[in-house]
């Protein structure tokens, strides 16, 4: 089996390092932070970790259906492609800050991309 992106990035440690940076970017980003206004910070941090693990192709029990269900409420209040793009952009900026090589960043963006239709409920 080939190494997953998750392993190449450094596994769980990499995710831990990325959570604070990524979530800080998301909360500071006026294009998308309204979606995160009401969620409890601690729970949300755990979910960000789930998000990043997934985005890095790490071990995760989430299915496409979970992604649909998890974001259905957000789609109802207007979640669309521009928001999705903003999240992917923040993900890329986070990895850049952590000095992840460009080809791995591209791989992460591609993995995130593969969830687009599920997240946006299409």
């Amino acid at each position: 089996m080939s190494k997953t992106l998750f392993d190449k990035l450094g596994g769980e440690k990499a995710v831990d390092a990325a959570v604070d940076i990524f979530y800080r970017k998301v909360l500071s980003d006026d294009r998308i932070n309204k979606f995160f206004a009401d969620v409890d910070m601690d729970k949300q941090a755990a979910k960000q970790k789930a998000f990043l693990t997934l985005a890095f192709g790490g071990p995760s029990n989430y299915s496409g259906k979970d992604m649909r269900v998890g974001h259905a409420q957000l789609v109802k209040i207007g979640l669309n492609d521009t928001h999705f793009d903003a999240v992917v952009e923040n993900l890329g900026a986070t990895l850049k800050e952590l000095h992840v090589p460009d080809e791995l960043i591209a791989e992460a963006a591609q993995l995130a991309e593969s969830t687009r239709n599920d997240v946006l409920g299409r």
């Binding site: 601690d42 729970k43 755990a46 979910k47 970790k49 789930a50 693990t53 071990p59 029990n61 989430y62």
Partner: peptide
Amino acid sequence: SCRSGICQT
């Protein structure tokens, strides 16, 4: 929720 030791629910 996540059943993988992450979300702490």
